[in-house]
């Protein structure tokens, strides 16, 4: 009944852990950038006057938000394969994570758009701003500023969720852990180290987003509103 932990035996694999952590960050980065793009488009699409576009965006958001990421990853993995596309596990992982986080981003951005007072848009029209200018300066940027905390915590959750990509053998942090524990028979120690690494990664991401927020929204910094 005594616990015997042997961390050095596992820690000597640190280059593999680092490589895994780097790939996890890489996955999170690409999925965040692409997902933010798709999600914003889907949020705009949901407000479209065309019922077909609005409906399609709603179906996308609801279908993704109500099924597990693990199932989505397998569907993308085998779906692309059955189309005859032979893609690397990394590409499939980025594609699946992007589709996933895009739907959540769409919901958050929609809340942001809804929070923009109509009066501001009318005021911008009154000042003869072009449609594009209004969309960019009056709707999109303030909406992002409003939902920035929710968006960034969603992106941190995405980084954590990318651990599921180990199931299609993308060599990210959890996959590395699975490999090391089967090699060293030190499962508990391995996963404790990996848990610590994920906590560090999420703290790093949060700090990064906080700093990015200060740069992107100087108005907020001047007002002293906490991000």
């Amino acid at each position: 009944m005594s616990i015997q932990l042997d961390f050095p035996a596992v820690l000597e694999r640190w280059p593999s852990f680092l490589a895994g952590a780097a790939l996890t960050l890489e996955l999170a980065f690409f999925a965040t950038v692409l997902g933010a793009l798709i999600g914003t488009l889907a949020a705009v699409g949901r407000g479209s006057r065309s019922a077909a576009i609005a409906g399609a965006c709603k179906v996308y958001v609801e279908a993704i938000r109500n099924t597990p990421l693990l199932v989505q990853i397998f569907l993308v993995y085998f779906g692309l394969a059955s189309l005859g596309l032979k893609l690397s596990a990394f590409t499939v992982a980025v594609a699946a994570l992007t589709i996933n986080v895009g739907a959540y981003t769409a919901e958050i951005m929609r809340a942001g758009f809804e929070a923009i007072p109509r009066g501001q848009i009318e005021a911008a029209e009154g000042l003869a701003l072009s449609r594009l200018q209004i969309y960019w300066h009056i709707i999109l940027l303030p909406a992002i500023e409003k939902v920035y905390p929710a968006l960034t915590s969603q992106f941190v959750l995405l980084m954590l969720a990318s651990s599921v990509c180990s199931q299609i053998s993308a060599e990210e942090l959890t996959a590395v852990a699975n490999y090391i524990q089967s090699d060293t028979y030190r499962a508990f120690e391995t996963y404790i180290i990996v848990a610590v690494l994920y906590i560090i990664l999420s703290l790093v991401m949060r700090a990064g987003f906080w700093g990015l927020g200060l740069v992107l929204f100087p108005r907020r910094r001047r007002l002293g509103t906490p991000l």
Binding site: L160, A161, S162, S163, V164, S166, T174, A177, Q181, A187, F188, Y191, I192, V194, A195, Y198, I199, S202, L203
Partner: peptide, 15 residues
Amino acid sequence: QGTPLLVILFLGYFG
């Protein structure tokens, strides 16, 4: 909240 559920599951399983 800083750890993926998958890792928590492995920790429970092997713990």
